[in-house]
Design a binder for these strands. Sequence first.
DNA 1: TCAAAGCGCTACGGGGTCGTAGCGTTGCCC
DNA 2: GGGCAACGCTACGACCCCGTAGCGCTTTGA
Lengths: 209, 209
Amino acid sequence: MASRSDRARDAVLTATVELLEEVGVERLSIEKVASRSGVAKTTIYRHWPTKADLIVSAVRGVAVAVPTPNTGDVRADLISCIRSLHVAVVESGMVRILPSLLDAAQRDPEVADLQDRIHDERDVPIRTVLELAQLRGDLPAGIDVDDAADLLLGPLMLRTLLTRESLDDAFVALVVDTVLRGLGVEVVARPEPVVTGVGAAAVAARRRS
Amino acid sequence: MASRSDRARDAVLTATVELLEEVGVERLSIEKVASRSGVAKTTIYRHWPTKADLIVSAVRGVAVAVPTPNTGDVRADLISCIRSLHVAVVESGMVRILPSLLDAAQRDPEVADLQDRIHDERDVPIRTVLELAQLRGDLPAGIDVDDAADLLLGPLMLRTLLTRESLDDAFVALVVDTVLRGLGVEVVARPEPVVTGVGAAAVAARRRS
DNA sequence: TCAAAGCGCTACGGGGTCGTAGCGTTGCCC
DNA sequence: GGGCAACGCTACGACCCCGTAGCGCTTTGA
């Protein structure tokens, strides 16, 4: 059972995340958090002396652990990896918070640290997939994994943040295929004109047969 | 000669851009703009009824026209194109404003429009280079130019925005080479292990010999 | 059970910002 | 050089937010 303090803590963090999505970092005020969470302002200050502290706590709580696929097929692993990453980022509301966070990171070193940590954690699955592929010899050894990860995630980030388009599976496949081929990997599955809306399961099933 | 109104206008826009770089969209106040520009608050309101109006005017003024190279060499053109784009975005201070703008665009449709326009304008040179390459037959005709542009710009955007790394020439070359090869272009100049820090001039000279 | 810890509530002075009004002052253009 | 448009200045009431103090009340845990 959660103690009273814990309940207050949770309520505050939840409210903070909600407000971050709605109004961003700069317009977030402790008083808004207090009124939305039902927790007294003084109590919030007792837990988090600074707005930055509160935001760091709240955002850290949103971090979603994405599983690392390992079927032995680089292409399939990357695609599944990127898809779940995207789903996580969208469903957790992170997409809406990120620009604001990026902005705040320019001025607040605490937020900058947070942002770096999030960035690193997010890349772990992709980097792992790439490193495993290198160990298997499916990916040339000379390739810098960080560079490759940025090559893959960059276009998706761009579509997600700058353009406010929804990310379709066809584009994910295109990115993965193009980058892999560009890095010298023989891409087995041709980038067939993908029917948008076909889920990962169906694609996987098709390949299995 | 600039009239008094024009002088006031310019002063306000300059101050606005400066403040946008320093404090971002949300923390920008008309009063700060007034005191920095030396223009009376009332005058500012006479010109721009809304904060959004002011910001749109100011940011539009920052837009930098990047030349479209056309040497007939896709690779070289893309690299030069991307480099000058990067320089423009950094030197104009746009990098520092963009996150804040992205954030504001989520809530203010006016800012969202502005952001879309900037995004489109920025991509024109790259898209042109790609289209010309397609006409020459250097780039497969089936490739969607918008997709290709995002493939190229995404990784650079990511490095520029998320990571606050400085963009080195080697990475630009890597991105261009990888994407081009991935799209089925025979990349002539091998991505030789580039010595970081070697400027564009030196690289070009080496290739010429 | 009962003391201690922690929460809720109210209130405070201080500060920044908004958008407008009123009025004096300057500069532009005919 | 004179009239008018545009600017500069001051002031205003309203609002929101900050961070802290003081105190009563609930929960916790020994």
